[in-house]
Amino acid sequence: MNIRDKIISSAKQTIRSEAEAITHLATLIDEDFAEATELIYRSKGRVIVTGIGKSAIIATKIVATMNSTGTPAIFMHAADAIHGDLGTILDDDVVICISKSGNTPEIKVLVPLIKNGPNKLIAITSNKESFLGQQADHILHAYVEKEACPNNLAPTTSTTAQLVIGDALAIALLDLKGFSSKDFAKYHPGGSLGKKLYLRVSDITGSNLKPQVGADAPVKDVIVEISEKMLGVTAVIEDQQVIGIVTDGDIRRMLSKHDNINGLTAKDIMSSTPKLIDNDAMAVDALDMLEEHDISQLLAVDHGKYAGVVHLHNLIKEGII
């Protein structure tokens, strides 16, 4: 076997091994998982997630997922907890402790300190019979038979299992809370993901210039309007209603057909079936329309009246694409 074949074989084996372990986790979801989830759901405090080593790294990701899906959570490193950070835990908080073995020295020191307080303790562990498992009020069983590491040493499959259990817990809480896409947008206002969830067409048209001409406007005025408003297009308006559109492409085609443009008006060169979008629609819907029709601009309307232009460049600038 050459080196590339060996690499491919190793990678595939790792993925298969972890996939099998994750599939098995579904059989371990039980009443204890449901009770732990309900405990967090009904709690008036936060979720404190702690661990040591690789489990601590997984804990930080679980905290991030919970915070972004409506469950307030804080990471507390197990080693730091016994050197002052234990004060992070408030009386109404629920503590989740992550450890594959459940028997590490730091865990054995930390768990009794947590149990001395009023807080409920949830364990995410592969070993239900461990010190952590026996002390926990609830166990989320993240059992794995072996690591993907050929020496069965490096935390690989076990940390993947912990992460999946954390995701299952976060999504179960999300479902209980009825956490919607609007809620998600509230917690993700930055970046393309957030903007796809909250940015509306009106947010764009409100900051753009608003090119428009009447149906009888001379072609020269149409060209000037398109040039000055810098959106490559102008709406043709009658009684505040859109009756047509003229694009810079329409201007080029007109010039190729006519040696003399004197006497030509907007209605002579406009398209009378422009693509329209509601000003209150989501910006991502505007993107879908632009892609569907392979165009660069849409005219927006508000209760039937012309509201402005959405250009593909606007969506690129906003990071929607």
Rank of each mutant, 00 (worst) to 15 (best):
D302H: 14
H141C: 11
N208R: 05
G70C: 09
L132H: 05
L86Y: 01
D30L: 14
T50P: 01
L197R: 00
I139G: 02
A300C: 12
S43W: 04
T69A: 02
G232Q: 06
V47N: 03
K6C: 07
F131Q: 07
I29T: 07
H303V: 10
P150L: 10
F75H: 07
E238Y: 14
S180W: 12
A286I: 08
D93N: 10
L132R: 05
I204K: 01
P189T: 15
E225K: 07
V246M: 01
A123T: 08
A34C: 14
I98E: 00
E18V: 15
G117N: 13
Q212I: 11
P218F: 02
P155E: 07
V309C: 06
N208W: 02
V111T: 04
D221K: 13
I114H: 13
S192R: 08
D137Y: 07
G53D: 12
D80E: 14
L298Q: 02
K6I: 14
I74M: 14
H293V: 00
I237Q: 00
E35L: 14
L287R: 00
S17V: 10
T157N: 05
V219I: 13
L169K: 09
M282A: 00
K186G: 06
N151K: 12
V94P: 03
R4A: 09
F131S: 11
K100G: 03
N152G: 04
S158Y: 05
G308S: 03
S101L: 12
P189A: 07
L197A: 01
E38Q: 15
T14C: 14
G249R: 10
L298C: 10
I245C: 03
K100N: 15
A79N: 06
P218S: 11
A172Q: 04
S272N: 13
L290G: 02
I243E: 05
Y143E: 13
G53H: 13
T157E: 03
N2L: 05
L209Q: 11
T273P: 00
I171Y: 01
L231R: 06
I52A: 06
E318I: 04
G214V: 10
V109T: 15
A235E: 03
A34V: 15
V284N: 03
Y143T: 13
L174R: 08
T60S: 08
I251T: 09
E38I: 11
L163H: 09
D302F: 09
L176G: 03
A266Q: 05
T247Q: 01
Q135H: 08
M270H: 05
S10L: 08
I8T: 06
K120Y: 08
V301Q: 00
